[in-house]
Nucleic acid binder design. Structure first.
Length: 270
DNA sequence: CTCCATGTTTAGAA
DNA sequence: CTTCTAAACATGGA
């Protein structure tokens, strides 16, 4: 479930279970996940070293090794980072990168293998090359407004455009729109300045709450605040705010779930 | 078997 | 140049 809040949780897991410990063994799964490095080279680069620092930008997790290199992790649609106790259990299913430390172990897990694992020398250069916008939790209101400025098209497309703001995916975009009471097909051109500011604050509220709800726990969506849409996103469920039936629409090629009563279309929507 | 899925990239069409 | 759409990637789950 790797959007910004999920990746932030993975970062914290790595901080807690993988920092300052000698990497005793490395096991690479499907090498198609590897970016510009062979499994052998990656193993050699990690083994015997220790992680010293983590960074997250949007959906990317970067981990600095004691020799200055950075392990780069992107989780695609089904990636996860799971600690496990090798003395008690095997690595989780769909493990693609197993790291055994002098104490404990971590597994990068991915069913659909749409993520990327790499190794770079320069974290800043890597992020620059990814052409990401500012992290969605770090961007200021002014910068947010400025970046939305010369843009056309839909609000949802803007929120999920990683080059505009990094970290928001399809699920959290729906949540932000729900909290902002905007129909998923709302166009940017329909929003005035104060509505855009409200959107910014909805974005912050959602991401902050999600990061807090996830910290240290498993069933993330169920731990979100009661008035959040995401725990009710499955078919046939009702709006946590008004109790009315939720609806789904195809927006920009992806499913959008929303409450037609709380998020009515404006006349400027498509 | 069919359809859908939290992401990204790419090709082609507006 | 920007925006939108469909397809592709790879695979499991309903």
């Amino acid at each position: 479930m790797p959007e910004l809040p999920d990746v932030e949780l993975y970062r914290r897991r790595l901080e807690r279970h993988g920092l300052h410990r000698r990497i005793e063994a490395v096991e690479v799964g499907d090498t198609r996940l590897l970016a510009n490095i062979t499994g052998k080279a990656l193993s050699a680069a990690l083994a015997g070293h220790a992680f010293e620092e983590t960074r997250r930008h949007g959906k990317h997790l970067l981990v600095r090794l004691d020799d200055g290199h950075w392990l780069t992790l992107h989780f695609g649609m089904t990636g996860d980072l799971q600690p496990f106790a090798p003395s008690l259990e095997g690595a989780p299913d769909y493990n693609q990168l197993r790291l055994d430390f002098d104490r404990g172990a971590l597994a990068y897990v991915s069913r659909r293998k749409l993520g990327r694992i790499g190794l770079v020398e320069d974290a800043e250069a890597f992020l620059r090359a990814e052409a990401l916008g500012p992290d969605a939790l770090e961007v200021s209101e002014d910068t947010f407004l400025e970046r939305l400025g010369g843009r056309r098209g839909g609000v949802k497309a803007a929120l999920t455009d990683q080059s505009l703001f990094a970290g928001i995916g399809n699920l959290y975009a729906d949540e932000i729109l729900f909290q902002a009471r905007l129909h998923p097909k709302t166009k940017l051109s329909a929003l005035n300045r104060s509505e855009r500011r409200a959107l910014y604050h909805a974005m912050r509220k959602v991401l902050t709450a999600a990061v807090e709800a996830e910290a240290g726990s498993e069933r993330l969506l169920d731990r979100l605040p009661d008035d959040f849409l995401l725990p009710h996103r499955d078919a046939g469920q009702s709006c946590p705010r008004c109790g009315g039936p939720l609806k789904s629409l195809q927006v920009g090629g992806r499913r959008s779930t929303f409450c037609p009563r709380c998020q009515p279309p404006s006349n400027a929507d498509a």
